[in-house]
Design a binder for these strands. Structure first.
Length: 290
DNA sequence: CGATGCCCCTGAGAGC
DNA sequence: TGCTCTCAGGGGCATC
């Protein structure tokens, strides 16, 4: 599920009930997700205030006043669902559900947070490819989870000059290069397909062979598609939900993803094709993307 | 250095 | 209705 826009969408929905709030209780319902929870996981969070809720690549980062940061990765199917009561149900533009009977006891509800907003936040992940851990905030950047991660595509540092440097000499297809988290942080299969289509670059083209004058449009396409997707609450194919429980809607704006066999939306009379690159589906228009 | 394939795990949807 | 097969947004790892 979650690529940068989905994680950012979840972060924005968690912000009102997490940032500045105290974790009054944390419960785990099993001993591990993709990796085991660290020692004393819940005890190290109980009673701590969340001083900031950030995002890095596809990770959510909740800085705690203890000097540790709760690191959350949603994997493929992870959700963070917020439930609230009374006036807390509407905060700004967010409307949270009341906790239904048994909220947090579902088969794949793995971690339950209570905050003093007050709110209950349930992490649910049926495939369990997600992870949660605690890392010293001051040493996050050196941690093995983060030390090799590239720049944020929505930051000012991401530009054609950076991209030229990152792709220089790379003999891998541009599709694979853009998915490489060491080069650009947070892009996943959907948004790489969409960005390459918008920039009219073939996913098969070798990364190092792209003419320099094609990089500014690619940078723009990546930024545009990410921003538009965040504005739409992300893309919901199967599992993604915003913190409010609402689906995202950017899937309605896909130009190529999942459109195999359908007409190219640029009106070239061509047909969208699906190929497999590095074990993952790539959708593109062979006529428009060169 | 890069490509490929496998693995983690579960569920949805297609086809029979 | 139910079985089996394929596939899924991520990412780490081994192997060639």
């Amino acid at each position: 599920m979650p690529e940068l826009p989905e994680v950012e969408t979840v972060r924005l929905g968690l912000l009102p009930v997490m940032e500045g709030h105290v974790l009054t209780d944390v419960q785990t319902r099993r001993g591990d997700l993709r990796i085991p929870f660290p020692r004393d996981f819940t005890a190290r969070m109980r009673g701590r205030q969340v001083t900031a809720l950030r995002r890095r690549a596809k990770y959510l980062l909740a800085d705690l006043d203890s000097g540790e940061t709760l690191v959350i990765h949603l994997g493929m199917s992870g959700r963070m669902s917020v439930y609230a009561e009374g006036k807390q149900r509407r905060i700004g533009s967010y409307v949270y559900d009341k906790a239904p009977q048994g909220a947090g006891t579902g088969k794949h509800d793995h971690v339950v947070f209570e905050t003093d907003a007050p709110a209950r936040i349930i992490f649910n992940d049926h495939r369990r490819f997600g992870l949660m851990t605690l890392i010293q905030t001051a040493h996050l950047d050196e941690d093995k989870l983060f030390r090799d991660i590239g720049i944020e595509p929505l930051s000012g540092k991401f530009n054609a000059t950076y991209l030229a440097h990152a792709l220089d000499g790379k003999k891998t297809p541009i599709k694979s290069a853009l998915l490489d988290q060491r080069l650009i942080a947070g892009l996943g299969n959907i948004y790489v397909c969409e960005a390459l289509f918008r920039a009219k670059i073939s996913p098969k083209r070798l990364a190092g062979s792209i003419r320099k004058d094609r990089l500014p449009p690619l940078v723009s396409a990546i930024r545009r598609v990410l921003k538009d997707a965040i504005a739409a609450g992300g893309s919901t194919l199967r599992d993604h939900a915003q913190a409010t429980g609402d689906p995202g809607s950017f899937q309605h704006h896909f130009l190529v993803y999942g459109r195999e066999g359908k007409a190219c939306k640029l009106g070239c009379k061509g047909t969208v094709k699906r190929i497999v690159q590095a074990g993952r589906s790539t959708f593109y228009c062979p006529k428009c993307q060169t």
